[in-house]
Design a binder for these strands. Structure first.
Lengths: 241, 241
DNA sequence: CGGAACTTTGAGTCACTTCAATCGGTGTGG
DNA sequence: CCACACCGATTGAAGTGACTCAAAGTTCCG
């Protein structure tokens, strides 16, 4: 398995020089398959290497002292799982697969070496800035919208993000989440998650069954939560820098 | 006005070479004072330069379609206000001062030049990773805690962040927020913000009046929300990289 | 066929919201 | 020096969105 998905991802943030590309592709990445539902990074883990998701779907989460769980991000192919381990020896949150995944391993000193290349460091910085932007939007989502709106917003976001990586077919895509996990993402109880989902279904906006989301009316869904995709920075058009 | 606050901030993320320091200090930064309560970056603005807060207190926020406002971050001296404008021509959120501030301006092409230096690019990446970490914690805060716990958590965070930059005296510090702004940060109505604040006060944990927070019992406050400061990455100890 | 995990639904309760009014401090003009 | 306006803080009361508890229905898999 090679670093192609990863290189493509970096390129989305700006031109990667031929030299850098060569460097990355020559870097043999160790790769492993991980089964669905396996928390492969746990809060507190000391990490000797950094993970890149090559295939599948994963999420970041924290379990608070109260035992409640909050999912704070979804990880798509090409994404770094734990760039943050660059600065902290121990992981400050956990990561679990949500379906069968392929994950590449980069030794930490290898990563340090990568960062000496301005082109790569810049691409990682940009990638981190977009993640920040998504996190800020989630904060607004959790703080200011009601249950149905929150859910519509999450589905809109995932629709656009999956679409851009080519994973949407006939307006539907794999979103391998249980309703409990959906609730942990939106800060809702399981029961209320179920009832909010029903409302969206009854408005003929979507169906969501066995980990597959089918969007019937994306315009309607966007309207429910006043969705605007600018925060996803999809166009890929960058100014200078 | 020079870039000292900024250099000190970068140094917190790892050694900055003498050459880089010289480069930064030689860079004459244009600096302006901005009065309290002035939104100096507005969502949609096309930015020709990047801002660094040198002195004061500011916040990021978004106004949703519904008119509701969400504050998504507080900006302290030394922080970049809009590193994200590196990747997007237009700002995707607004920033306002919360008290009188001093702000430095860096032309965008100057910043692009800075990023060609691996040491600086790395420091900015690290800074961005820590911001991400804080955003993730806020997501957990908004999603999983009740009003009183949320508020306690925010106060704990600000206590530690202000302390590390030397702005805490006698367990109290300037937090120039109205209760309405506090509510917009925590996703609470003004009325409930006031009532939650009262509960914390009645437990003799703190006082909060005219933009000044006095922490009477930090251990008690931490206990209310099960606060753990690891996500702030305060120690500054970094592994390789 | 049995069990586990997930989904669905109903009922009662509570945290938080909205509406509405008052109170206090501060600045301004007469 | 007082009257007035303004803004933020405070409080009470009523409404509601989301929660918890409880139970039954479904789907999937060994």
């Amino acid at each position: 398995m090679n670093a192609e998905v990863f290189i493509r991802k970096l390129e989305a943030f700006g031109p990667i020089s031929e030299d850098d590309q060569l460097y990355l592709s020559r870097m043999r990445l160790e790769c492993r398959r991980i089964a669905a539902g396996k928390p492969f990074i746990k809060s507190g883990d000391i990490l000797g290497h950094v993970h890149i998701l090559l295939d599948g779907f994963a999420c970041r989460y924290k379990v608070l002292g109260s035992g409640r769980r909050q999912i704070s991000a979804f990880i798509l192919p090409g994404d770094f799982c734990d760039a943050h381990s660059l600065i902290l020896k121990a992981a400050d949150h956990s990561i679990t697969t949500l379906c069968d995944c392929a994950v590449a391993y980069v030794a930490r000193d290898k990563l340090a070496e990568m960062l000496e290349r301005p082109g790569i460091a810049k691409a990682l910085l940009f990638s981190s800035l977009i993640e920040e932007s998504i996190l800020r939007e989630w904060i607004g989502n959790l703080g200011q919208r009601n249950a149905v709106q929150k859910m519509a917003h999450l589905f809109c976001e995932m629709y656009f993000r999956m679409k851009i990586v080519g994973l949407v077919t006939n307006n539907s895509f794999e979103l391998p989440l249980s309703q409990a996990e959906l609730g942990d993402t939106l800060g809702l109880s399981l029961v209320h998650t179920n009832k909010s989902l029903r409302k969206l279904r009854e408005q003929n906006l979507l169906t969501f069954r066995s980990g597959k989301l089918h969007v019937l009316d994306i315009a309607g869904l966007e309207k429910v939560c006043q969705f605007s995709s600018t925060y996803l920075h999809l166009e890929g058009g960058r100014p200078s820098g």
